[in-house]
Amino acid sequence: MQNIENKVVLITGASSGIGAATAKVLAAHGAKVVLSARRKDRLQQLAAEIGENAAYLASDVTRLDDMKALTALAKERFGKVDVLFANAGIMPGSSMSERKVNDWMAMIDINIKGVLNAMAAVLPEFLAQKRGHIIVTSSIAGTKSVPGNAVYAGTKHFVRAMLDSFRTESVMENTNIRTTTIYPGAIKTELLDTIAPSETKSQVEAFYQRVGLEPDVIADAVLYAIAQPDNVDVSDLAIRPSREG
């Protein structure tokens, strides 16, 4: 596919779900993928399945040094970095009145700081080479208010606003860095596993089981965004089941 072959793509949250599906799809079209997640065994298995076009590093997006090491691995193994897919995220949803402060802070650390750490690690490369592509997984929750999941929605609104502002900066500074924000709806991943057991969780799980989409649909959206000519910026892509309100 045009503009995919031999591109080097860093993927966070690559051990399952959207990240793993995206790694497989991109590699199948000739990209080289560098995989990041905390579960080393999952990464080993995925990299072995993909073959020589995959490298991995057990790493934590909340640590800037880990993201710098991931970038260094990409350069050492494949000589460059073309794309960052900042995909890692968690969703331990609850009402604000429950005051689950530890969950709030964990979402801020991973969903917000994790994206910023990954960007901080790759930006020196992108700025030096005057090109690059940053793709971030937001959520449909990043486009509206979500009672019962306010902090998660807030983190996803943050990445939406931040990346759009960065896109404008890139245009002003003539750095040729493309940006894409992905807004998944109900996708069958392990994201719901981070929610504590409750009646609400059971209802959400039943909905996802009934109408949820497979992670491959998001992988195909990432593939589409990367494959466009360098002068085309696919800024926003919302992907959800046709039966999701």
Rank of each mutant, 00 (worst) to 15 (best):
K80D: 08
K80M: 07
V83T: 10
F85G: 02
A86N: 07
A86F: 12
N87P: 08
N87Y: 12
A88W: 10
A88G: 04
A88P: 02
G89S: 06
G89D: 07
I90W: 03
P92L: 03
P92T: 12
G93I: 13
G93F: 15
G93E: 10
G93R: 09
K100D: 11
V101N: 07
V101D: 11
N102T: 11
N102Q: 13
W104E: 07
W104P: 04
W104M: 06
M105G: 04
A106W: 10
M107L: 08
M107G: 04
I108Y: 12
I108V: 15
I108L: 13
D109N: 14
I110A: 02
I110F: 08
N111S: 09
N111I: 11
I112M: 15
V115P: 01
N117R: 01
N117T: 13
A118D: 06
M119G: 07
M119Q: 14
A121M: 05
V122C: 01
P124Q: 05
E125H: 11
F126A: 01
L127H: 13
Q129Y: 13
K130V: 11
R131N: 10
R131K: 15
G132D: 06
H133K: 06
H133R: 05
I134R: 01
I134K: 01
I135F: 10
I135W: 11
I135N: 07
V136P: 07
T137R: 02
T137A: 07
T137S: 11
S138M: 09
S139I: 14
S139C: 07
I140V: 15
I140Q: 10
A141R: 00
T143D: 06
S145A: 15
V146N: 02
P147E: 06
G148T: 06
G148Q: 04
G148R: 00
N149S: 08
N149T: 14
A150W: 06
A150G: 14
V151E: 03
V151H: 00
A153P: 00
A153D: 02
G154R: 00
K156A: 00
F158I: 03
V159T: 09
A161T: 15
L163T: 13
D164E: 14
D164L: 08
S165N: 03
F166S: 00
F166M: 04
F166K: 00
T168H: 08
T168W: 05
S170I: 09
N176A: 06
T181F: 03
T181E: 04
I182D: 04
Y183G: 00
Y183D: 03
P184M: 05
P184C: 02
G185F: 05
G185V: 10
G185M: 04
A186P: 04
K188D: 08
K188Y: 09
T189D: 02
L191S: 01
L191N: 04
D193E: 13
T194S: 13
T194I: 14
T194K: 00
A196H: 10
A196R: 11
P197V: 11
S198Q: 05
E199H: 06
T200S: 05
T200L: 05
Q203T: 14
E205D: 09
F207W: 13
F207Y: 15
Q209D: 13
V211L: 08
L213Y: 14
L213G: 08
E214H: 12
P215G: 09
P215M: 08
D216W: 04
V217I: 15
A219N: 12
D220A: 12
D220S: 12
D220R: 14
D220I: 07
A221W: 10
A221C: 15
